[in-house]
Amino acid sequence: MIRLRFSLALLAGGLVLLAALAIGAGVGETAIPPDVVLKAVANRLWVAGYPIDPIDEGVIWSYRLSRTLMAACCGAGLAVSGVVLQSLLRNPLADPYVMGISAGASTGAVAVALLGLGGGVVSMSAGALAGALLAFGFVILLALKAGRSPVMVVLAGVAGSQLFNAITSFVVARSANAEQARGILFWLLGNLSGVRWPDVGLALPVLLVGMALCLWHVRVLDAFLFGSSSAAALGVSVRRVWVTLIGASAVMTAVMVSMVGSIGFVGLVVPHAVRLVAGVSHGRLLPLSALCGAVFLIIADVVSRALITGQVVPIGVVTALVGAPVFALLLIRGRTA
């Protein structure tokens, strides 16, 4: 019964995701109907040879589809990371950035863009990725020294984030002119407009591997319900699971953030929202969170493009503006249910 309902939910979610991808690729300055989107994709993938406007086809394939897929990857990756970190750290406030990853990414990006680190050869994304991983390493080291408990990890994350954010602010205040500062702020709040196929070519495999690792461990994640010593008593190799899953979340998050900036809210709120509806069993929670995160971010991206004509609102602003009220509603409903 429950399994049937879950399968149906998964199927429905998959269909919604496909629809969202079609909408994401169709909406923009020139609206393109979904059937043309499908034809364009068919033309590119299977040389179907549908007679459609080559400009439309180019726009869909080269810009919008890659961008929309990237939104889906980010949404799924951040949501899955959120689920994993909330379970392992036993902290409902944990999100993918709790390990200092987004702070580190912004420092890396700023170091490249403003300080000219890497001598112009290194892209802002590469700088962000390096910064994110550096900050993550710093936080983990600090947490290990401070006593390894989940609370210590979260505290170390807070400390690391503050440190790296301070460095970012310092660099921006010292070296940026108004125009650059605006650009940096924009990047920090999330921006998908620069995404091309090579980016997707990196993000998608990282997402798939990370998700596979997490799905492999759904039972184990369930066993953390009463904490890590309880999980150990249930036969879980706690240390190995921590290293694998926290590492996977960190890498997924770092890769996404380095390409699109730190989009807030998804990793924190999507897992909670799904949990309210689908319960705490990770076998359901993980795949549904991934789907919801993907769809949510695609829609947020569409809204961010359509909200003000001729201008793109940072997607992080949209996720928060749309997500917060929805989440508030869910919380209230979940309480009375």
Partner: peptide
């Protein structure tokens, strides 16, 4: 735990 779980879910963890 702070999570919303049922008694059956908790007992089911024993099968892990």
């Amino acid at each position: 735990t702070q999570e919303r779980v049922t008694v059956r879910h908790v007992a089911g963890l024993g099968r892990t």
